[in-house]
Amino acid sequence: MTKTALSTDRLAAHGLQLRYGDRTVVRELDLELPGGAVTAIVGPNACGKSTLLRGLVRLLDPAAGTVTLDGADIHRMPARALARRMGLLPQQPVTPEAVTVEALVRLGRYPHQRMLTPWSAADQAAVEEALRRTGTDALRDRPVDQLSGGQRQRAWIALALAQDTDLLLLDEPTTFLDLRHQLDVLDLVTDLHRDAGRTVVMVLHDLGQAARYADHLVVLDGGELAAAGPPGEVLTAELVERVFQVPCRIVPDPETGTPLVVPLARR
């Protein structure tokens, strides 16, 4: 429905610096992610995409700078309150042994529960909705560790959906999936945005997919912001050559008209 940026659910970084030990991965980053839109973070390997995502959801404490959600510093918010607003699909989640799909998805309700509150109708409704949306309804009794890659990824997305947050952050949700399952996941994610007005931020590898599915593109290079904006404006041949060191032409996607990167023939 709405593709215009809402005034809420704005995630922003101000002078953000992220480090692993002595290694600075993201330096002095100023960034604003529009609310109510799909943002894709792209960049070459080891440019700090995943690190930035970890910083945005508070998995990594900044060495300097802040991350704000609607103007409030996320490091000053209670962890559970933040988890009710922001959900995360990590790159390599640990699948507990022999846990069924439904049991896994139910864990998504954790931030909404208090220590002694029993499982409520609202909880169950959220779980059912998440299972239905991801098409994992029929798999609910299957152990997650016995599912195929695509099914497993959908189960994990269902967990993040059951968390029922306005903001959803996904770290390379399409890795290890074949083309059809990649598209399934991306369609699902954009549906979430379109039907429910959620804000989606995802790290992607494929520039064509990023341009096709995202409203807003963030290009990182060496831990610094190389460009940000609508894909049609940002994705230029010069930028791709500068950031990825790949000479290319940009042509309109014959299906959607979004920019498509075509590397130049090397010989």
Binding site: R54, V57, R58, L59, P78, A79, R80, A81, L82, A83, R84, M86, G87, L88, L89, P90, Q91, Q92, P93, V94, T95, P96, V99, L104, L107, G108, Y110, P111, L159, A160, Q163, L169
Partner: peptide, 13 residues
């Protein structure tokens, strides 16, 4: 049990 990243995303330090 879901790993440190998922746990962090669900509001558990």
């Amino acid at each position: 049990d879901l790993g440190d990243d998922s746990a962090g995303g669900l509001g558990v330090d």
